[in-house]
Design a protein around this nucleic acid. Sequence first.
DNA 1: ATCCAGGGTGGAG
DNA 2: CTCCACCCTGGA
Length: 276
Amino acid sequence: MSRLGLEETLLGGQSFSWTALSESSWKGVIGKSIVELSLTENKLQWRTGKQSPWSEKELRNYLWLDPSFTEAVDSLPWRSDPVLTTCMKKLPGLRILRQPMDEVLFVFLLSSVKSIPQIKEMKELVSEKYGEPLELGLWSFPGWEKLAQISETELRALKMGYRAKYVQAVAGQLANKPSLLTDIVKRPYEEARAMLLNLPGVGPKIADCCLLFGAARTEAFPIDTWISKTLEVRYSLSGWSNQQQAHFAIKHYGKHAGLAQQFLFSAERLGLHAKS
DNA sequence: ATCCAGGGTGGAG
DNA sequence: CTCCACCCTGGA
């Protein structure tokens, strides 16, 4: 576990639940739980709030701290892919978090044409206005049931713009079928993806983000502007459609393509290719 | 001051 | 397949 790898895992755009307390410590709100992480001398330390405390097991699951992570890393084609190797060497320990699907769907519905700070701000506004108060002046994500009671106008007031319509519509569907998300998580990848694509405001990119970050489907390979650029520039795939790029990804990176995506995405976002 | 892009999607041609 | 509106905010 490296400092940069962990920092990028928590703050790099797969989760919007974490804030930095210092160079190497972070505070997160997941569901109604508060968790603090710090990295000193390469050792991970943690503590959790009193209200809805996490067990060590929950923490290990959330951070993907089991042997399957090492196996997934080893399954990537780093032996034959210098571009991927560079990204992996620069970000040791970067991983996919296992976040709750409801929160992931919400933040990625807000993500279109928005930067990380903007997405975080929208989520915080919603939490402070409609969530439950927790310890330390923090607020929980309100949950979809609560969101269903909020009008589009009210959501627009929280800087959501046209995304408010999607949030409203999805909340409505989930109100009619509360089991939908837990149902989706149980289905095989293709089927789960098709179900997500049925939701208003959810296209291929957001569906794959939900499956990768909110359902631990590491075969999901979200194609956004950054990854598209990486594939064009680093792999000479310019002119390829998103569908063709997706086909390349699963073929080249394998069954944990989503993990490769995270290394490529972060390296591109942080500009790590420029430096030697 | 305008312009433009910020982890897209849905609809039209 | 390619355009482009959709909201709105901050930075060039």
